[in-house]
Write a protein that binds this DNA or RNA. Structure first.
Length: 911
RNA sequence: GGGCGAUUAACUCAGCUGGGAGAGUGCAACCCUUACAAGGUUGAAGUCGCAGGUUCAAGCCCUGCAUCGCCCACCA
């Protein structure tokens, strides 16, 4: 450490790079395929290869890194499996955009050439996020980095597809799916995001067919209806009014539907209506599905462009007439509107309806519209031939695994959401009409219509021998390959050592936003293909990172905080600690720079404390002689042990905020604020050489423990300090976590902690008096403490050493209360009164006022406790432990009250 | 429509199986005390969203209400 760096605050820049390289060069992140050590494994949620590190990634990966580094300190063989996801639609969009900038399209390139372009893109810029993860300090085993389109993973995908197909769990079918006209592909239900939009509800009249065509009976009845219902029925006279938000789909209507129980249509005799703007007529059907409350009670049925209507169509055997094409433009079936964009068609169709007098009215309405999760274009529900996974049987097992506790979801509240989804799951549309992805391994024979699904590419039709077989052009949903991630990355379908050692993984760390997309599907696939073994023991669901006001970070709002900029400014350690400190379960993390700044100061505090320690620690010998320890030294060793335990439990129970704040509190407010100050007299050799050496040893030991227990949170600065400390050698990553069950009892001493608490109270009181009475810091004061029984004498005697050690802060000596100096102020702590004697003149008025205030406060508190103790029901029913506690509290307060009163009288007399 | 969460100091949040509310930041006052002004000491500040209930005892459990947020769902 050069003297330059000593002058300034901690400067993370060069240090972070240096140590990350060191760790990589020395293979600290490497997992062993086989080992005698206990195994610990996590697979990374693979970021999209197009991804740029955002706050969500940062939180997610910092949590994983904390766990991995912690387990290494415990001596585990740790595998943190890294990788990226090929992100089918997202990546294809990026590359297409690049092409568009050159004025080219993917169709011009053709499939093979285009895919080649994507691979090139990936090589050039696809690894960006990996380097960004490294800046965070992520300790993944990078040599094992996987990509969902790797050869090995593709083989796994192929095997899984073929097996599911042969088991009858994959099928092809004509169904209504969500179509993105911009990406020109089908989307799974999950990939559609719904958004409330302002829209209109159009009331369109569908006229009855000309009455001339009807038989006379109907005609008569119709006339009769008109008469009886009068003008109210004016609308029905000419047809049925239908309310719709999507007039452009009317060309695909193949029926109107009304509820059979709807009184408004009880007397309706017409069986068909004319479809406006066309020359078609469509039937009126009756179905209970129709909501009598909504609109006019009459529903247009468009089986090819609405999921509900699709079902109605199936039920009533209606034709499914597709009118909107894959590019979002109207088809020939839309008559003269063919070729128009669907939005334009809506506009023109409505205009024409107005001209024809068929638009009754248009009403504003809030309407939720689905859009593509990748490009946010409105999706078009459309009928199409797609591949599906029959998920119900898989979901059942995945659901059971969580119900039985084989996999634990943390926090448990998410289990319910998980069950809800698993138990109501719909078949999963896995085909996508894009080029980038795993091409569906299905071949069809145009001659004999055979379908060939095999693990190796067929060259001819096994049924008729035709060589003309053609492969399916669709690719698989990206999530299909990610669903295999926990075992495909470990070499499946081979039964590798890696799998044997590390599957099932210990924990999966993820945000709830991909609970269904990813976690649920990994559960299904893992159980199905790994002999009923769940992919992970625990699923830890962490919060979402939001801005400081709790809003979702988004580019359009301009409230995005770039993790890399934060790292640049405050250092990765400070950033990581901030994330950990705010990662309380079940609540969103609100991130703001000022918070990072606070923890940057903490890093600096640690740095400066270490600098101080280095001025004194000179030798490597850190053997501690228990018999030579001062009270303060025993105390700090005890607190250090307690803190290590708190950190351990925090990390192991996914309560990272608790672990972080325990460490923070200890390092700053116990180690720095108290211990370092108390150690100074000894360190500066004011108590002899032996005491100095003991103090050095304790300082060295505790600082080392702190560095190691903070390492999972702040890897860089701890490595730097660890390497500077004289007592340590090698990397902090080889150190042992400073919690040892067998010695914990020896280090932890609650009696000592209590006694120190007493001393702290005493000192606080003295400072309080100084502050309240405006005693100049430069003014020396004497402190006298009176003790009243043997027990306290012991404590005080013990304290005396400590207090003498505090020479730089205050000076103490002890006397009887009777020997009061002529001018004094008092304070009461616990069972002891202390008097501060002043060399100057005391302000009696002020001191009396202060004491009176104290007395009042104390009396109030005492009365409260008394009231409780007078309550018979309380004494009767409360557990003994509680009663004893309250009684002790009462005694304490009573005594304090007495002393305050005595002191007050004395002061008054002095005056 | 169904489900979930939140509401605690000026701000951001802890508070685990009920036993008299905590932290950080901010604020005020005083301090360059030889690791640290990115610091130290001291202090002020809360009807724990509202209303009922259970209990000897409620921030915590129950019921209802209000406000905000999220998820799911096939409301044309």
């Amino acid at each position: 450490m050069g003297s330059d760096s000593l002058d300034k605050g901690y400067e993370p820049k060069g240090i972070e790079e240096k140590w990350y390289k060191y760790w990589l060069d020395n293979g600290f992140f490497k997992a062993k395929d086989k080992s005698d050590k206990k195994a610990f494994s996590i697979v990374i949620p693979p970021p999209n290869v197009t991804g740029v590190l955002h706050m969500g990634h940062a939180l997610n990966n910092v949590i994983q890194d904390i766990m991995c580094r912690y387990r290494r300190l415990l001596g585990y063989n740790v595998l943190w499996m890294p990788g990226t996801d090929h992100a089918g639609i997202a990546t294809q969009n990026v590359v297409e955009r690049d092409l568009a900038a050159q004025g080219r399209t993917r169709d011009q390139l053709g499939r093979e050439e285009f895919i080649e372009q994507v691979w090139k893109w990936r090589e050039k810029s696809g690894g960006a996020i990996i380097n960004q993860l490294k800046r965070l300090g992520a300790s993944c085993d990078w040599d094992r980095e996987r990509f969902t389109m790797d050869e090995g993973l593709s083989e796994a995908v192929r095997k899984v597809f073929v097996r599911l197909y042969k088991e009858g769990l994959i099928y092809e079918g004509q169904y209504i799916i969500n179509w993105c006209p911009r990406c020109k592909t089908a989307l799974a239900d999950l990939e559609v995001e719904y958004e409330e939009k302002d829209s209109y509800l159009y009331y369109i009249r569908y006229p009855f067919t000309d009455s001339k065509n009807k038989d006379s009976k109907n005609k008569d009845q119709k006339n009769k209806d008109q008469k009886s219902k009068g003008h109210k029925n004016k609308d029905q006279k000419k047809g049925l009014i239908v309310a719709t938000t999507r007039p452009e789909t009317m060309f695909g209507d193949t029926a109107l539907a009304v509820n059979p129980d709807d009184p408004r249509f009880k007397d309706l005799v017409e069986t068909e209506v004319v479809l406006p703007l066309t020359d078609r007529t469509i039937p009126i059907i009756r179905d209970e599905y129709v909501d009598t409350e909504f609109g006019t009670g009459a529903l247009k049925v468009t089986p090819a462009h609405d999921p509900n209507d699709f079902n109605l169509g199936e039920k009533h055997g209606l034709a499914k007439l597709k009118v909107i094409g894959d590019d979002g433009c109207m088809l020939e079936t839309a008559g003269k509107f063919a070729g128009l964009d669907r939005a334009e068609c809506r506009k023109q169709a409505v205009e024409e309806l107005i001209e024809l007098g068929l638009l009754e009215k248009k009403v504003s309405i809030k309407h939720s519209v689905g859009n593509c999760y990748r490009c946010h274009t409105d999706v078009e529900p459309s009928i199409s031939k797609q591949w599906f996974v029959k998920v119900a049987p898989l979901a059942e097992k995945a659901s059971e695994a969580v119900r039985s506790g084989r996999t634990k979801i943390i926090p448990d509240i998410w289990s319910k959401t998980y069950f809800e989804w698993m138990d109501n799951i719909r078949d999963w549309c896995i085909s996508r009409q894009i080029w980038w992805g795993h091409r569906i391994p299905v071949w069809k024979c145009p001659e004999c219509r055979a379908v060939i699904v095999e693990e190796t590419d067929p060259t001819e039709c096994p049924t008729c021998g035709s060589k003309e077989i053609v492969q399916e052009t669709d690719v698989l949903d990206t999530w299909f390959s990610s669903a295999l991630w926990p075992f495909s990355t470990m070499g499946w379908p081979e039964n590798t050592d890696l799998l044997k050692t590390f599957y099932p993984t210990n924990v999966l760390v993820t945000g709830f936003d991909i609970l269904f997309f990813w976690v649920a599907r990994m559960m299904m696939m893992g159980i199905h293909f790994m002999d009923d073994e769940v992919p992970f023991d625990d699923v830890y669901i962490h919060a979402l990172v939001r801005d400081e006001h709790g809003k979702k970070m988004s580019k359009s709002k301009g409230n995005v905080i770039d993790p890399l900029k934060v790292i640049d400014e405050y250092g990765a350690d400070a950033f990581r600690f901030t994330l950990a400190a705010f990662a309380a379960q079940g609540r969103d993390v609100k991130m703001s720079e000022s918070r990072v700044e606070g923890y940057r100061n903490f890093v600096n505090k640690l740095w400066n404390a270490s600098r101080f320690a280095l001025m004194h620690i000179t030798q490597k010998d850190t053997v501690i002689d228990q018999n030579k320890l001062s009270l303060a030294e025993k105390w700090i060793l005890s607190r250090s042990a307690a803190t290590a335990l708190a950190v351990k439990e925090g990390i192991e129970n996914y309560r990272f905020n608790e672990a972080a704040s325990a460490a923070y509190q200890f390092v700053w407010h116990e180690f720095c604020d108290w211990f370092l100050e108390m150690a100074k007299p000894a360190l500066y050799e004011k108590e002899g050489v032996q005491r100095r050496d003991t103090a050095r040893s304790v300082l060295s030991r505790v600082l080392e423990d702190i560095i190691v227990m903070l390492h999972p949170f702040m890897p860089f600065v701890t490595e730097e300090i660890y390497n500077i400390l004289p007592a340590t050698s090698g990397s902090v990553m080889n150190a042992a976590f400073p919690y040892d069950e067998t010695v914990y009892g020896n280090n932890r001493n609650e009696k000592i902690e209590k006694n120190m608490g007493f001393v702290f109270g005493l000192i606080s009181d003295i400072r309080n008096i100084r502050s309240e009475m405006n005693i100049q810091p430069s003014m020396k004061i004497k402190v006298l403490a009176n003790t009243e029984d043997e027990k306290e004498k012991i404590i005080i005697a013990e304290n005396k050493t400590v207090i003498v050690n505090l020479a730089s802060l205050e000076s103490f000596y002890f006397c009887d209360a009777e020997n009061l100096p002529s001018s004094s102020a008092t304070s009461v702590t616990g069972n002891t009164t202390c008097f501060v004697s002043l060399e100057g003149v005391i302000d009696f008025e002020k001191e009396i006022k202060r004491l009176e205030k104290d007395l009042e406060k104390n009396t109030k508190e005492l009365l409260g406790v008394q009231k409780r103790l007078n309550n018979e029901s309380f004494l009767d029913k409360a557990p003994e432990k509680v009663i004893a506690k309250v009684k002790a509290q009462h005694a304490e307060l009573e005594e304090k009250n007495e002393k305050l009163q005595t002191n007050l009288e004395r002061i008054k007399n002095m005056k």
